[in-house]
Design a protein around this nucleic acid. Sequence first.
RNA 1: GGAGAGAUGGCCGAGUCGGUCGAAGGCGGUCGCCUGCUAAGCGAUUAAGUGGGUAAAAGCCUGCUUCGAGGGUUCGAAUCCCUCUCUCUCCGCCA
Length: 427
Amino acid sequence: MLDARFVRENPELVKKAIAAKGEQADVEEFLQLDERRRKLLQETETLKHRRNIVSKEIGLLKKAGKETGEMMEQMRLSNERMRELDEEIRELNARVEAILLSIPNLPDPDVPVGAQEEDNVEVRRWGEPPKFDFTPKAHWEVGTDLGILDFACAGKITGTRFALYKGDGARLERALINFMLDLHTEKHGYKEIFPPFMVNSQSMQGTGQLPKFAEDAFHVEGTDYWLIPTAEVPVTNMHRDEFLEKDRLPLYYVAYSACFRAEAGAHGRDTRGLIRQHQFNKVELVKFTAPGDSNAELEKLVADAEEVLQLLELPYRVMLMCTGDLGFSAAKKYDLELWMPAYNAYREVSSCSNFRDFQARRAGIRFRSERGSKAEYVHTLNGSGVAIGRTVAAILENYQQPDGSVVIPQILRPYFPASHPGVIRPG
RNA sequence: GGAGAGAUGGCCGAGUCGGUCGAAGGCGGUCGCCUGCUAAGCGAUUAAGUGGGUAAAAGCCUGCUUCGAGGGUUCGAAUCCCUCUCUCUCCGCCA
């Protein structure tokens, strides 16, 4: 959420940002409601000021044994007007807040302006797409033929957009989770968190999923709980409504979690395979930093995620998202995209964003710099480090052999039994 | 699920016959003094949110709100009443 004062003072800038992101939010209505709200606020506060003074006086008079009946009667009357004003202010507050929550974050100045994917900018590429002297199969065929993925069975147990991993497939999934957690904790200095997979609505609002994107998430009926769409939600909310001491920053967290997404707007897209599931695993990186540090921290975050792909020896590219692809809360975002031979295209496995103080303001995550000792909001960043299911898909496609087997990336061998041949074969 | 206790400022912790309590005290922070350095010591200062005024700005002046959340009683509520949430202890149940 943006600062109300900032919106009030820079309405044109905010409107431009809303348009650039392709979002909808009524800044004009905000300005009108806000002005009326402040006018009423002044009126009721004047009345309250008087009440406070008179009440004190009544206390003193009573102590002195004086008559106070008339003053009390007067106060009773002005209380009615206060009640009316407060009621209207409360309504205005709710409407102003609602608009404020619907205004997206401002894009950074160095973010390319654009409406669609084609406007994203490729920053760099790593690795060479493998050359096959046979026609590479799609990962769902590879996995199904090997007997390590079973979509039909998952469909029976649960429904569409779920996957069942078996044998070496399940092992591969688990190996990737452990490999990534180990890398980020041991080499990159992140603290490991294992969060709840359900959160309350306040947490969902803190990171920006609510109120706008309720239909993208699964809600547990009869409760205030939501299945997390990413570990970003519980981990960022760890520090909701807290002050973080300056010398504690930056904070680096890494969390494995299952992620649950309704994919409401994606009917008919990626219906096969592991690319778009209602439930998938992800290792997520989350940072809390001082405001001045978030630019540099985003670059480091991207590098940390890239190292996962490099060690797995999977070809990828880094994309800088244009304003239209930034999403609601981000000020700047890089996507990492893995090469998928069967798609003959790069597909996203990681999204690394700098939210600046947008989430922190919603979630009330503050800190004090030593000097002015004035409270400020921290900056939050996060990125996938990386999505597991899509990585499995990429491994199955990039490491597939002519005979249908799949070579296990070298870095993952220690996560398989010593007796394992290092190749996944049918059976 | 049953019984009880609790929730106060960055942190800890006082505060019930409702009135000068936004809140004692301590810790921590900041500034100054002192000390050969460090440690200790002395003094001052230090809640947040929001509105208005003033200033180029840092800031300064001023109002209102906030003692888990929401509602109520009252001229006046941290203090009284109701509802809810969370935490802790005991019992029961359970992976």
